[in-house]
Design a protein around this nucleic acid. Sequence first.
DNA 1: GGATAATCGAGACGGTACGTCGAGTCTTTCC
DNA 2: GGAAAGACTCGACGTACCGTCTCGATTATCC
Lengths: 188, 188, 188, 188
Amino acid sequence: MPRPRSEKARQSVLAAMRRALAAGGYEAVTIEGLAAEADVAKQTIYRWWPSKAAILGEALVEGELPAPALPITDDLTADLRAVFSAQGEGSGETVALARALIVVTATDPELGARLNERLAAPLRAWTAERLARAVQAGEVRPDVDAGIVADQLIAIGSYSALLGVRMDSERAAALSGLVLRGIAAPDS
Amino acid sequence: MPRPRSEKARQSVLAAMRRALAAGGYEAVTIEGLAAEADVAKQTIYRWWPSKAAILGEALVEGELPAPALPITDDLTADLRAVFSAQGEGSGETVALARALIVVTATDPELGARLNERLAAPLRAWTAERLARAVQAGEVRPDVDAGIVADQLIAIGSYSALLGVRMDSERAAALSGLVLRGIAAPDS
Amino acid sequence: MPRPRSEKARQSVLAAMRRALAAGGYEAVTIEGLAAEADVAKQTIYRWWPSKAAILGEALVEGELPAPALPITDDLTADLRAVFSAQGEGSGETVALARALIVVTATDPELGARLNERLAAPLRAWTAERLARAVQAGEVRPDVDAGIVADQLIAIGSYSALLGVRMDSERAAALSGLVLRGIAAPDS
Amino acid sequence: MPRPRSEKARQSVLAAMRRALAAGGYEAVTIEGLAAEADVAKQTIYRWWPSKAAILGEALVEGELPAPALPITDDLTADLRAVFSAQGEGSGETVALARALIVVTATDPELGARLNERLAAPLRAWTAERLARAVQAGEVRPDVDAGIVADQLIAIGSYSALLGVRMDSERAAALSGLVLRGIAAPDS
DNA sequence: GGATAATCGAGACGGTACGTCGAGTCTTTCC
DNA sequence: GGAAAGACTCGACGTACCGTCTCGATTATCC
């Protein structure tokens, strides 16, 4: 019976959040600025989101995070390098989103954990799948915990992104080497 | 010729920052609250620090961060596990400082990078020294880049702390295994 | 379309201004104190008034300045004395308002002039009317400029008030004599 | 034995006060600004003057207030007009001093009264002397109170200055007429 | 095809903190 | 002991956002 929620307003707010993040970082985002930028009343924001972090969460999940290439070929080494390299890319907007995610995690661990899990899922799935294949090929020792390895990949990527360390091919190669030897089957 | 800066006021502000961080997190710290808590005039803070982050930086560097044990024994495996385990400890105040550091790094990468470097220095030094010894003992391949390894250790520790993942002995063992195999000499 | 201005807040601020003036004088009035006293947010004051002086102006104009008696009887001498005497009265609050007006006038001549004109209007009207009547009765020379006479009355009253000179009946009589003789018709 | 007060500093402060008044009005004068402008330490000001008003007082009294012409000729009418006209003149600095005096009087009546008396003294003396002469010449009624007349002159002058009313010859003539008729001997 | 009920824009409201300015005091060194 | 320098505490300034609260002015259904 009543008027339904405006999808247009919702999208407008999320877009404004992404733009604002890229422009000045999470801390510089204000609800007031968002409302103005999205051409939406403040109340409309407060009606639908409990906090700035919640808007960020929705923007992150909904955002067309450009799904970095997670290739599965026959070449384990090349695949690993590709993953590391992918983490070094990303537009300014993507980097801003990543940093915002970190701030939110440090501020609200609960929400942060949920978002991290949600966003890391593809990489986790890739790791599990790729490792299973490599085990079958005898390239990787069978007792390796894919979860731990995925954590390692994510941790290194996040840390590099946070500090703004550029992921050049040399660094990607070095890291791949470490990881590969860490998981390699003893007799390969 | 003029009255010199009050060391007492300076220490008082840094202490107030540490207490405030432990109490409510970096975002909840306000200059006004700091001034009240430190029993110091706001102007005195603005006179000597350009930003909240700068105060945090000084507090971090000056703070007696309780220097986690970084042992160098004959047992490389044990040493590595000890380092991982140490990162899982830390009082609430230490965790608060770590989280604040992350927020600052995401907000002001330049300052963040400087602080990270400063704080990570002991671990970096330990890594270099321990690896050199291990190389000499033939336990570790000689072409391993100690810097990369240190980054790996720090990244895993930071990421775990950020997400509040507790570093139990099982996890410490798994991680140590990965790292050790990554750096082990081929013929050892 | 938006929420309309709160008349209650407005009145509350003006009342607080009047109380504050009586309590400590114009210079001692602070916006912050006003806000606290009126139980109103500072921003609400800044939203509607450009300066402390503007609030004073509104308080003066709106205030029920108790409209001193300005009698018109058949006795010109008595009427004049009544006007002088009236200026010597006034509660502490009225005196405070008058002093504040003077400070504002010295500080912001433009606003001061407008306020003075506004507040002096009744006395000016009275002077014009009373003089016209007296001219018709042949008591006052027809070429007297009522504006100048009104200025004279106001000037003497203001100066006395400023210096805190009490307007006793003796002084009122002496002043009335001077003024009366100044305007009297030659043949009366 | 002790170092004597620096006359140079004293003069420097008074000069700075006069300049500051002319530049921005009494309210805009700050001790800090005075100190900087006079190239003097703040403490030096606080050591010798109890308040901003006190500095103003010293500046006013010491200042070479250019002593408006107060002529005594045989022509009473002309003399009066000259006095009124003189009040309309004055450099910007003089006007600023006059306004500052008014603000101080409204703020600190005690000090204000003393300063007013001090500064009005010449005009008061002139009035007494000129009136005495006129009484002897039979131009002025002998029962006129010179004090009241002087008050009238001062009041009109102050009020005009405060409101920024220009004292043109027409206005001077009208006022002179009023005053003259107010004091004129009945049979002249 | 109206009634109606929640949504929307707009923005005023009471608050908290911001970063700055000036007041008046204190401390240091130089003269 | 006076004076320059400037750090100190304190309190007010005017601004920015916070989250809440009215206000019409739209829209969808549902009768």
